[in-house]
Simulated assay, not measured.
Amino acid sequence: MMNGFVRLKYFGRTVTHVRSVFAARNGGRYQSSKIENSQDGNPLLKYLTMKIKATGPFTVAEYMREVLTNPLKGYYMHHDMLGEHGDFVTSPEISQIFGEVFNQFQYLLNACDISIHLVEVSPKLSEIQALNLTKKSTEAKDEDTSSCYKIGITKTGLPINWYYHIQDVPSGYTFYIAHEFFDALPIHKFQKVQDEWREILIDVDPEIPQKLRFVLGSSCSPIAKTFVQADEKRNHVEVCPEAAIIIQKLANQLKKYGGAALIADYGHSGDKEDTFRGFRSHQLHNVLVDPGTADLTADVDFNFLKMMIGNTVSSFGPIAQHEFLRNMGIDLRLKVLMENAKDHTMQTHLMQSYDVLMNPDKMGKRFQFFSIFPHGRLEQTSKNKYPLAGFTELEMS
Rank of each mutant, 00 (worst) to 15 (best):
R213P: 00
E100V: 05
K211D: 05
L131H: 14
M64Y: 09
N26H: 13
M358N: 04
F373N: 02
E238C: 05
Q380D: 09
L8V: 10
T293W: 00
D183A: 00
V67E: 00
A261N: 03
G364N: 01
M81A: 15
G259R: 03
R65W: 00
S281V: 09
S315K: 01
T345F: 01
H268T: 06
P92I: 05
G376N: 11
L48P: 06
R326T: 15
C240E: 05
N384I: 12
I153D: 04
L125C: 09
E100R: 13
L48W: 02
H285S: 13
K306D: 05
V60W: 03
F304Q: 09
M351L: 13
D299W: 08
N70W: 06
L125Y: 15
C148G: 10
A244C: 14
T293A: 06
S147I: 09
A140W: 14
K383W: 07
I330W: 01
S38A: 11
M1K: 09
S95F: 03
F302M: 07
V121F: 07
I151G: 11
L201T: 02
D87R: 03
V169A: 07
M1E: 13
K53W: 05
A230G: 08
F22I: 10
A243C: 10
S32L: 08
Y163S: 03
V101W: 01
S137K: 14
M81S: 15
A251I: 04
G28Y: 01
F58W: 11
P387Y: 06
M328A: 07
V336A: 08
R213V: 15
D343Q: 10
S95A: 07
